[in-house]
Amino acid sequence: MSARSRVPVSMIKSELVQRIAEHNPHLYQRDVENIVNAILDEIVAALARGDRVELRGFGAFSVKHRPARAGRNPRTGAHVPVDQKSVPFFKTGKEMRERLNRGNGTSEAGA
């Protein structure tokens, strides 16, 4: 079975912490967990301030603002107001896209 034909599996934060700890045996797992939490907390705090977070080669996190609008209840068809909201947005970096598309037989010339 090739790697491309396997069923997608998600990784949760505790599994990420465990993998990083395995690759860095000189660090305690609790320290790795604190580092991962600190990074994620800083990204969230920056987005909450309205900042953009760019991790070169990986991607950029930003916030998109969606205006208030009139929605529709799919069950009853009644119109309902939908408040404005801010949603997180992630755009992959060029290096990540190239690594993900390397060797899959597609041409990147038209991308």
Rank of each mutant, 00 (worst) to 15 (best):
P81E: 13
Q84D: 15
R4Q: 15
V80L: 12
P8E: 02
P67G: 05
I43K: 03
D41N: 11
R72Q: 05
V36W: 02
A109P: 02
N104H: 09
A68L: 03
A78S: 13
R99E: 08
R102V: 07
E54R: 13
A45E: 11
N73D: 09
I20Q: 00
P74D: 04
L55Y: 04
S5I: 08
Q29V: 14
A46F: 01
V53P: 00
E98H: 12
V80S: 06
V7I: 09
P81L: 08
E108A: 10
R30I: 12
R102C: 05
N101M: 14
L47T: 01
E15F: 09
F90L: 08
N34E: 14
E22G: 07
R4G: 12
R102D: 11
V44R: 13
N104A: 07
E33T: 10
R4S: 15
G71D: 01
L55E: 07
F58H: 06
A38L: 10
H79E: 14
K64A: 12
E33Q: 14
V9D: 07
Q29A: 09
E15Q: 15
M96Q: 07
E42K: 11
G110P: 00
N34Y: 07
F90T: 06
H26P: 00
P25K: 00
N37Q: 10
L47N: 01
I20G: 00
A38V: 09
E33D: 14
R75K: 14
P74V: 06
N104I: 15
Q84C: 11
K85D: 03
Q84S: 15
K85H: 10
K13T: 10
G105N: 05
R56D: 08
A109E: 14
L40R: 05
A45L: 06
M96T: 11
A48C: 09
F89E: 10
F58N: 06
N73F: 04
M1N: 08
V17D: 00
A70E: 13
G57H: 04
F58D: 03
A78F: 06
S86Q: 11
I12T: 08
T76I: 04
L40H: 08
V53Y: 01
P25V: 02
V36D: 03
A68Y: 02
G59H: 02
E98A: 15
A38D: 07
S62K: 08
A46W: 01
D51L: 02
D31C: 05
H79Y: 11
E33C: 03
P67M: 03
V7Y: 06
H65Q: 13
L55H: 07
F89A: 14
R102Y: 10
N34K: 14
V53F: 00
R75I: 05
V36A: 03
S5H: 11
F89C: 09
T106F: 10
G93N: 07
G110N: 12
R99W: 06
M1L: 13
H26C: 04
R4P: 09
E95A: 15
N101C: 12
I12L: 13
S10M: 11
D51S: 03
D51C: 02
H79M: 13
G110K: 11
D83V: 10
E42W: 05
